[in-house]
Nucleic acid binder design. Structure first.
Length: 584
DNA sequence: CTAGGGTTAG
């Protein structure tokens, strides 16, 4: 009897049984995982709201935080709406969580509206409020404004920024490529001018950005700096550096980095190895990539769909598409389901090997499995169809992809126009190009290069010249391929003067001639029997480590009997032939 | 007791 009474009393005190009961359920939900987690949380919320007296805002915040962690931002906001309707008083925590939700939903403006509400109600926003808003601006790609707000906090001494504030701003600056500004801020933290020292995460952001900015050595320097200061590198630090090194063909150093990290007691992850696998594959050494896969398996790590997908790409790149196909079987054995990217690469591999039927069959098969081909898959398939001389089927597929909701991108158009031109449909290609209107997305030098080259190859040099003028008129900057294509056009038209003029223009505009450029000009000069000038260009090209191609060489050999015994041209040719022999 | 950030691979 006494017992019941005591419980009865406790029911109305702060630590009522229902309070602790809910606390328990919130705690167990925190540790739970699974598909019903959101629903369970919502159910608990309903139960709590039905309880009399109503639950306190702290418990509700705890529960809603769980929902936020599951990225259900609009749900979280609607729950706060309900608590408000129930007349439960809100607090600053609840406001901050709401601001965060709005920011995550791409509604920074609502976030600032809530800030106004806080101020209007005579409350004081705290650092968490400002951090959330600054981060909201970063999420909305409004990094400049984020930095301004950050500066305002400093300037007007609204509140003192902490490590999180600095972290947000550093990340934001890195995100938009202002790495040096981020580095400045990092140095500021290091200098002790503020009370918060940088942690490994802040270093990581800057190190990663430096690597992306192709400043790997700077990144390595900062890494050494950081370690010296006693900040322990994480797996992210190493991954960024390994990626950076790999991007610059420094695989040996990357592999050394892997050994270093293990020595330092940092375990590489699937990610780490996949970076190496991918890099070896891109370099053409699938053997090393396979070794890397073995190394990761030895460490108990399981290659994932990205790892295998990199391998497939590696085999395809070498034209070993049958080996690529075997990788799919290896994936299946391990219950890893190949995704559309994986299949796209294999399809591309078949297309490049001209095994168009195999590619087409796979393309159909994956759709039967329910996979949706993306713009890349269609691109490969289109290219394959064009290459196999079936432009009609390609055009049909181009229409079909749009019916299926895939929007062609600039790559698709490059493939399409290139394919059409190669199949002697350059006027159709041009008509289609015109029908697309003056979309900004169509202002692409590479697209113009394809069309210029296509028109000239289809025997329509005047169209090519018109396109070149048009490109200049649009303010597009011709690249080496544009110049080469136009120089070929002029040569074919017998306009050697125009050709040489263009070569000058190209150098003036800072566009370096490549092997093709020299071959075009040397071959044409030889054809025109202008051996002296040909000689000058020939020497220049050899000095720049370019070799004459087959056609140029033939023209050279033809001229040899006509030039004097000790002419420079003869010496050059002799030098060339001896080099050639050495190479063989 | 509850709120704010956090990166890497195809």
């Amino acid at each position: 009897m006494n017992c019941t009474r005591r419980i009865g009393l406790r029911y109305y005190s702060t630590a009522s049984p229902s309070t602790s009961h809910f606390n328990q359920r919130i705690t167990s939900l925190k540790n739970a995982s699974g598909p019903t987690k959101v629903d369970d949380a919502l159910q608990l919320f309903d139960e709590m709201l039905q309880r009399q007296p109503p639950p306190n805002i702290i418990q509700l915040n705890q529960l809603i935080t769980l929902i936020v962690k599951m990225k259900q931002y609009s749900t979280a906001l609607s729950l706060y709406k309900q608590t408000k309707l129930m007349g439960i008083p809100t607090d600053l925590y609840a406001m901050n969580i709401s601001i965060n939700c709005h920011c995550r939903l791409d509604q920074v403006a609502y976030g600032f509206a809530l800030l106004a509400t806080i101020l209007k109600q005579g409350h004081q926003p705290d650092l968490a409020t400002y951090n959330t808003l600054i981060n909201g601006l970063v999420l909305a790609d409004r990094v400049f404004e984020a930095v301004e707000l950050f500066k305002k906090l400093l300037r007007e001494k609204v509140c003192e920024p902490d490590q999180i504030t600095f972290g947000i701003v550093i990340n934001g600056l890195c995100k938009v490529g202002h790495t040096s500004k981020a580095l400045e801020l990092l140095r500021f933290m290091e200098s002790g001018s503020c009370k918060c020292k940088p942690y490994v995460e802040q270093y990581n952001a800057v190190i990663d950005s430096l690597c992306k900015d192709k400043m790997v050595d700077h990144a390595l320097e900062l890494f050494a700096n950081m370690t010296q200061k006693g900040v322990i590198a994480s797996v992210f630090t190493y991954n960024s550096l390994i990626q950076g090194l790999c991007n610059f063909g420094r695989e040996t150093e990357a592999a050394q980095m892997l050994r270093d990290m293990e020595e330092e007691g940092v375990s590489p992850g699937v990610h780490t190895f996949t970076i190496l696998v991918d890099s070896f594959c891109k370099k053409g050494s699938v053997k090393d990539a396979e070794l890397a896969v073995q190394a990761m398996v030895r460490r108990g790590l399981h290659p994932d769909v990205i790892t295998y997908s990199a391998l497939i790409d590696g085999y395809c790149l070498r034209g070993e598409v049958d080996d690529a196909e075997k990788v799919i079987d290896r994936m299946m054995e391990r219950d890893i389901v190949p995704d559309i990217i994986t299949y796209s690469r294999l399809i591309d591999g078949y297309c490049k090997k001209k095994r168009i039927h195999k590619a087409w069959r796979l393309f159909q098969e994956i759709q039967d499995k329910g996979l949706i081909p993306d713009v890349v898959t269609y691109g490969s398939m289109l290219q394959g169809l064009f290459e196999s001389g079936n432009p009609a089927a390609a055009r049909e597929l181009f229409n079909k992809m749009q019916v299926n909701g895939q929007v062609p991108d600039i790559c698709t158009y490059r493939i399409l126009f290139h394919g059409m031109c190669k199949n002697y449909q350059c006027s159709d290609a041009l008509a289609l190009f015109r029908s697309l209107g003056n979309k900004e997305s169509m202002e692409d030098v590479r697209l113009y290069n394809i069309l210029i080259d296509g028109c000239s190859k289809c025997g329509n040099p005047s169209l090519a010249m018109d396109l070149f003028d048009e490109l200049l008129l649009k303010g597009l900057k011709p690249d080496v391929r544009t110049y080469n294509a136009m120089m070929r056009v002029y040569c074919e038209e017998g306009l050697l003067g125009k050709c040489k003029e263009l070569l000058r223009k190209m150098e003036e505009s800072g566009c370096l001639p490549d092997s093709f450029t020299y071959n075009i000009i040397v071959r044409e000069l030889l054809k025109k029997n202008e051996c002296g000038e040909a000689e000058i260009f020939l020497e220049e090209m050899i000095n720049r480590d370019f070799m004459p191609d087959h056609a140029t060489f033939e023209n050279l050999l033809v001229r040899i009997p006509n030039v004097g015994k000790d002419s420079r041209l003869r010496t050059t040719v002799l030098k060339l032939t001896s080099v050639e022999r050495k190479d063989v």
